[in-house]
């Protein structure tokens, strides 16, 4: 029996909001994106609700919104481009926020691949299904992204 849209939305909204926040880097933008995607899904629920994995379909919708709206999705979260006032005693604040800034500057598809791998825990096949590309392309995105993100660490160590 197809789940009602209300039950589906109730169960999926929080994980979608968390995913969209990680993808866009902006909680408010994430709310707008998820709201718009759920509204569209609501209108098409007769079809979407019958899919094997409507949750995965919604995640693809959110991802496609992020990938397709270049200018409107420019990340300007409060933490991007701003150095923290003081490092926390363990240095974790510095490291985490520095990494978030580096991730924010990745090309869009690389960033999406990184989020799907390291936040959602998806494998190559699952990432390929979301991004609509081959697994080889997924591995290329991840490899290039990690190379960029690790290069920053090497520069930091050298200093």
């Amino acid at each position: 029996m197809t789940t009602s849209f209300e039950d589906f939305a109730a169960g999926q909204v929080t994980p979608l909001l968390r995913y969209a926040t990680v993808l866009t880097g902006d909680p408010h933008l994430a709310q707008d994106v998820v709201q718009e995607c759920l509204l569209r899904a609501q209108q098409r629920w007769a079809r979407i609700g019958g899919l094997d994995a409507p949750g995965a379909y919604l995640k693809r919708m959110v991802t496609n919104e992020f990938l397709s709206w270049r200018r409107r999705f420019k990340v300007h979260s409060t933490l991007t481009g701003i150095d923290p006032p003081t490092p926390d005693p363990a240095g974790r604040y510095d490291e985490r926020d520095a990494m978030l800034r580096r991730i924010a500057r990745l090309p869009r598809k690389q960033k999406a691949a990184v989020v799907l791998r390291f936040y959602e825990g998806y494998d190559d096949a699952e990432i390929a299904a979301v991004l609509g590309c081959t697994q080889g392309t997924v591995r290329s995105h991840i490899s290039r992204a990690l190379s960029t993100l690790r290069a920053a660490d090497r520069v930091k160590e050298a200093l």
């Binding site: 926040t21 990680v22 985490r96 926020d97 990494m99 978030l100 991730i103 990184v114 936040y119 993100l149």
Partner: peptide, 8 residues
């Protein structure tokens, strides 16, 4: 990366 994304 995982830690940073979870924080976000």
């Amino acid at each position: 990366i995982r830690d940073a994304l979870r924080r976000q």
